[in-house]
Structure formats: C-alpha cells, structure tokens
Amino acid sequence: MGYVWDFFAVARNADILLAGLGQTLLLSVCGIAVGVAIGGVLAAMRLSGRRTLSWPALAFTEFYRNTPPLVHFFWFFYGLPMAFGLTLPPFAAALAALGVQSAAFFAEVFRGGILSVETGQWEAGRALGMGRARLMRRIILPQAARRMAAPFVERSFELVKTTTLAAALAFHETIYSAMVIVTQTYRPLEVYTVVAGLFFIVLFSASQVAEWLEARGRRAGAR
C-alpha cells in the first residue's frame, strides 16, 4: 500500500491530546469518589437487614448493573435537565452518570468483601461484648478491605475506560480531543493509534502497580 505514517501531525497537537487526557483522569477521579460514596450507602442499606432499606438498594444496583452506561450519559445530559427546563454541563452530566452507575458496582464490591469475612469473626467480636458499629470498624472492615482491594481496582479501571463515553456529550476528554485533531489533520490512523497507546500505557502500568501493591499486601497479611 505504501502508506506513509505521519506521527508528527499528532505530536504538533500533543497539547490538545494531553489536556484531554487530563480531563479523562479528572473525570475518573471524581467518578470514583462519587461512586464510592454512594456505593458505600447502598452497601450499608443492603446489609442493614431491613427490607425497607435493602430492597430499594437491590433494585437500584441491579438496574444500573444491567443497563449500558451510554444510556445513562444521555439520560443525565439530555433527559433529566430538559424535563426540568435546565441545562447541565457535559462534565456534570457525565459525572452523575458515572457516579451513579459505578456506585452500583462499588456497592457489590463492598458488600462482597464484608460478607466474605467468616461468621466466626462476628461471633468472636460479639462474644467480647462489642457493639455492631465498633465490631464493623475494628474487626470486619480491616479484614474486608484487603479482600475488596482487587475487585475495587478492577472496577476503577472499568470506570476510567467508561469515561470515554463522555465524548458523546462533547466533553473534551481524550477521545473528543482526538476527534478534534483528526478534523484538523486528516490523520485518523495516527491519532487513534496514539490514543489507544496512551490508554494502554496509563491502564497497563497502573494495573502492574496495583498487582505489585496487592502482592505486597498479601505478604504483609500473612505475617
């Protein structure tokens, strides 16, 4: 074919792409924070033992775990604001969609971690006369946290990848920035290859660090 690659076209616009990557990371961090906060509440509701709390939380998590994130991006960007005659900036809409949906997944991570602690641990704490809250804080959560670490990291990575859907709301994250560069340079092959490479480098190196930390945590746990 004799196609001549021209990565210089990308390099000239590196600032746009890097700014986009910065927005991607910002949206990711905020999304994780919101997701963890709401997910914690949902997990507590599901573990409360009260149906009036656990059933709504169950319905919420099941709904958001079984519907595509893109629908929620549009729902929060176009649907909700328009119904109330408002407009929402793309970042806010994307954050709401990401936060709510990842909350459903984080809730399952938290719940799974807590349920994985053996009943003997609960009994030993209760036998000492510990109240529920103290038992949770001193005995259960420290053990559950270790087991939550791996699925938590996995979920966070999924979230980072999902932030790209905000491009469909014209939010200037990595992919949207890439599209902007493509319209200026007509170099989709180079631009999108670089974008894939960027994501790969960020996510793969982060996953290697996470794996290393996890292995270290396991060794520390087996002291």
Partner: peptide, 25 residues
C-alpha cells in the same frame, strides 16, 4: 489480551471504523 483489556471499547470501535481503512484501503 492486555491490549484489548487495557483500552476503552470506544477507542477500539473508533479505530476499526476510522483508522483501519486508512491502513487497509
């Protein structure tokens, strides 16, 4: 495996729709 698991699915779709044709014609 690592390449496809560590890049967003949207990037993959865009690459095959917009970038690949440049390469393959």
């Amino acid at each position: 495996v690592e390449l496809f698991r560590n890049t967003p699915v949207l990037v993959q779709l865009i690459w095959f729709y917009y970038a690949l044709p440049v390469l393959s014609g």
